[in-house]
Each structure stands twice: as structure tokens, then as C-alpha cells.
């Protein structure tokens, strides 16, 4: 329990120290928001269809989904559980091949996992047999290109300095998620694919993690695809919220979120934020009902 306490305090202190320079520095946020629309897309998904075959009964998970994600864009995929959000992510990551359609990243068709496409998993997938430091070095170590200064900087930025020699199970949930983020960033991916990474955290830790993620995203040029079923989280984080239908997953509507950056958590009570939220809730409500009916029918 005392670990958890230090954890929270640490991250709050840390935030104060890193927030300052960020707020004063340039904010390329508005540029980024348009990046996806004007610029050339980093990720192009054309007619993605995925049929699962669990024991003969074909299940259509995703049906002809089209989506482009621009360079340095922050896109949230929002949808009810079981709508095929994770399937889309797994196809971009290269874990699954599409049944029909195509996923291209940087113009190249995705066939296998690649370090340019980093993944953060819902339940953290730090290697339990490696220390936090070893986990953080894992990606660069595979290419024999470990940059210790960079690792230390990342661990410091996320309030994990001093925990290098700890094993993942010795850390709180929030710290584990931060360590997984460090492991990903140390590998310098072009796109970060995040599958409900904060859904297992308590509300307070979740808010802090969201702010930390935005800090990192605003500081370094990154493209993020973030999956969530949490409407508020999606609007708070994203340049664009892609609302998905219940299974089979398709794009129901795309919401451009023009909230100014950097975003702070008190923003969620503003009128502007609330109107985005109402719109998203309206869109997702019918889909959630359909998803629930599907689940009960099974």
C-alpha cells in the first residue's frame, strides 16, 4: 500500500516539474489536428474485413472499415465492447491478417509486427521475468542500440527513477502502465497503438496517465491510435474520435475534436467539452444497446 501512495505522490510531483516547460514551449497541437486531414496519411485502412472462425461458426468482427490516420495525429477508436476495435488494432500491429481489405503503414502493406508500430496492451505486458530497467531497454537491446541516457530520461519523466531494478509485480498498476509506456517510447515507434491501456486503473491514476500521455505526445512527434470505450477519455485525448458501430464493426461517424491544447483535466466540465460528449454519447448509445443485445443472444 505504501508503494501505491508513493506512486501517486511521485507522479503528481513529476507532473509539476515537466508541465512548466511544456506549457511555455511551442504547442504544435493545432497543426497536428489538421495533419490527418491535409497531410499524407501514415496509416491507410481500406475495406478492412475480418472474419473469425471459432470452431466453424464464422463471426464477422469488422466489416469493410475505412480509416486514415495522419502523421502525428491522435485518433481514438470509440465503440462498445466487442465491436471489433481490438481487431482493427491487431491488424495494424500485424498480429492478424485481414480476411479482406488492406492495411498500409507508410505506404507499405502490413504483414508482420514491426518495431515502428509499438503496442501497449490492455493488461500490461511487461515481461515479468525482467526488471523495469531491462524491460525499458528491451526494444533497443534487440537491435544492440541501447541509449542509456534516453532510458534514464524516460524513466525520470514518468516518475520511475529508482525502480529500475524492481520487477513489474513489485509496482502498482499505474507504475506498470508507465513502465510499459517507457518501454514503447524507448523503441521510438512511428505509431503507438494503445488498446484500452488505462481501463484497469482507478479513476485518479487514469486521469494522471491521460495527462502524462498527452504531455509525451505533445513533446515528441508521434502518431497515436488509442482504443477506448470511455467517451470522456476519447474526447479528452483525441484530435479525432472515430465512433464504431456494434459488431460487425464499421465507422459510424467521425468527430473532429477542436478543443485547444494542451488539455488539462478541468476542461471536462466546460460547455464545449460537454457538447462533444453529448454528441458522442448519442452516437454510441444505440450501438451499446445493440452490442448488449448481441451479448445476451449468445
Amino acid at each position: 500500500m505504501s508503494r501505491q501512495d508513493t506512486d501517486d505522490r511521485k507522479s503528481t510531483d513529476d507532473r509539476k516539474s515537466t508541465d512548466g516547460p511544456l506549457q511555455n514551449g511551442q504547442r504544435p497541437g493545432s497543426e497536428r489536428a489538421q495533419g490527418g486531414i491535409d497531410g499524407e496519411a501514415l496509416v491507410e485502412i481500406d475495406g478492412l474485413t475480418k472474419i473469425y472462425d471459432p470452431g466453424g461458426a464464422d463471426v464477422l468482427a469488422v466489416d469493410g472499415l475505412d480509416l486514415d490516420i495522419g502523421h502525428n495525429e491522435f485518433v481514438c477508436l470509440l465503440g462498445p465492447s466487442g465491436c471489433g476495435k481490438s481487431t482493427v488494432l491487431e491488424c495494424i500491429a500485424g498480429y492478424l491478417g485481414p480476411t479482406e481489405g488492406e492495411v498500409r503503414v507508410d505506404g507499405e502493406r502490413v504483414r508482420d509486427p514491426d518495431p515502428s508500430r509499438g503496442v501497449v496492451f490492455q493488461e500490461n505486458r511487461l515481461f515479468p521475468w525482467k526488471t523495469i530497467g531491462e524491460n525499458a531497454r528491451f526494444g533497443p537491446q534487440m537491435r544492440s542500440a541501447v541509449d542509456d541516457d534516453r532510458i534514464e530520461e524516460l524513466l525520470g519523466d514518468t516518475g520511475l527513477d529508482g525502480f529500475e531494478d524492481a520487477y513489474p509485480h513489485e509496482l502498482s498498476g499505474g507504475m506498470q502502465q508507465r513502465a510499459e509506456l517507457v518501454r514503447l517510447l524507448a523503441n521510438d515507434p512511428d505509431i503507438m497503438l494503445m488498446d484500452e491501456p488505462f481501463s484497469g486503473l482507478d479513476a485518479m491514476t487514469k486521469e494522471l496517465m491521460q495527462e502524462m500521455l498527452l504531455d509525451i505526445w505533445e513533446e515528441e512527434s508521434r502518431t497515436v491510435l488509442f482504443i477506448t470505450h470511455d467517451v470522456e477519455e476519447a474526447i479528452f485525448l483525441a484530435d479525432r474520435v472515430v465512433v464504431m458501430t456494434a459488431r460487425p464493426g464499421e465507422v459510424k461517424e467521425v468527430i473532429d475534436v477542436d478543443l485547444e491544447r494542451p488539455r488539462e483535466f478541468d476542461m471536462v466540465t466546460t460547455e464545449e467539452f460537454t457538447s462533444y460528449k453529448e454528441r458522442a454519447i448519442d452516437l454510441i448509445h444505440d450501438e451499446a444497446e445493440r452490442a448488449m443485445a448481441q451479448a445476451e443472444g449468445q
Partner: peptide, 21 residues
Amino acid sequence: DEEFSRAAASLGAASWQTFRH
């Protein structure tokens, strides 16, 4: 869990490195 192997692959591990690590 298969996701550990996936995580390793997405971090750039070749097949033998996944085996080893």
C-alpha cells in the same frame, strides 16, 4: 500468454530473440 510474444515482436525481437527472452 501469446501477448508476451506479440509484445516482443512489436519491440523488434526476431524469432530466436523471442525464444531467448
